[in-house]
Design a binder for these strands. Sequence first.
DNA 1: CTCAAAAAATGAACACGTTCAATATTTTTT
DNA 2: AAAAAATATTGAACGTGTTCATTTTTTGAG
Lengths: 207, 207
Amino acid sequence: MSGLRAQKKADKNRRILEAATTLFRKVGYDSARIEDIAEMAGVSVGTFYNYFKNKGDMLMATVSMEVEEVLAAGDAIIARDHDEVAPALSELIGKYYDHSLTYLSKEMWRTAMSLSIAQPETPFSKRYTALDHRLSKQVCDLIRALQQRGIVRSEVDCDAVGELLFNNVNMMFIEFVKDEDMDVNGLKASVAKQNLPVASLMSVGAD
Amino acid sequence: MSGLRAQKKADKNRRILEAATTLFRKVGYDSARIEDIAEMAGVSVGTFYNYFKNKGDMLMATVSMEVEEVLAAGDAIIARDHDEVAPALSELIGKYYDHSLTYLSKEMWRTAMSLSIAQPETPFSKRYTALDHRLSKQVCDLIRALQQRGIVRSEVDCDAVGELLFNNVNMMFIEFVKDEDMDVNGLKASVAKQNLPVASLMSVGAD
DNA sequence: CTCAAAAAATGAACACGTTCAATATTTTTT
DNA sequence: AAAAAATATTGAACGTGTTCATTTTTTGAG
């Protein structure tokens, strides 16, 4: 039975991941020492590094799950009928923000973003950046869908506006995770206010 | 002569700062060890920490100088006459980008941004964020100036649009410093493309 | 079943940012 | 000018992420 080794491996992988996410949420990313994670998972420090490239890589599993779910939810929103630009945008962006703290704490987001900027050549950063681009593309897709339904002016460059809006969404999210006192509703309100002029200018009918 | 101590202090401060920036640019931020910086400055490691709170704080002096200069240049641009939105925006943003690598390398920017996100409660992060806000406000000021000259539609919310545009500028700058192969001209072209629809929609006269 | 080769686990050792008790220097007081 | 107080310097020691030579476990062929 050659499955013994494979099963042990899968089991340890799961135990380490569980221990890490538990500790990250309980004591924070920085204070969760590899030694503690390894002990809680019932393995040695060396084994931890056998399963994960480094401490930061542990986060990516969680970030990835988070973003994949929100992308799926976003597709469902785009598929629906919308008759105004601003509410459609608010719904998609609101979904991003509402979902954001499901698996990750603000501190975990900060760490993930920080790592992806600090070491852009690592697999971690490349995966993070790829997820970001898929989100950006989704906002572009929404604008394009609205344009095809005749809600957005036909001369508007959907990709240009979509990227612009998403970059704002992203930057505001950075401000959000940097400020422990800021809540999701405040964030959504700020972004809605920023989007409004662009949304109304690009709408058909309004002038 | 009570100036002996003060003069020594100023001298050491300068020597440490010089050594650090030299090494950061020569071998990169991560590879520049405190021990090396201290040795090059002719002081002990302990003394380094007497003058600077930590390694990251060394960067802030440089970042601060960089941004202060660009803010001054930006004010001069805003004061000038403009008759179109897009070129005015491009000029201000182009100045930001052109100036950005004067004192800091891409790696130093990445480190600074990364630190400011990872530890938002530190003085480092607070200073960085404050500089960011002043830049954001400057973009708002430009839009407002254009509006007062009758170039931007009167119903446009200048702060909303300004923040949106600046957040895009900022996010694109993050992409820029994450990619060693991207040059300033490519960056400027991308941002100009993103700005164009908004610039033309908000212009008086165009529809 | 035995045993050699492959795979996995281990924890001591290392690197580097940071701290701090001890020491040295400068300034002030008398 | 001597002593006391204030300030500055020092480098060994510490904490924590990461590496790697060694040991243990698993596998499959003979």
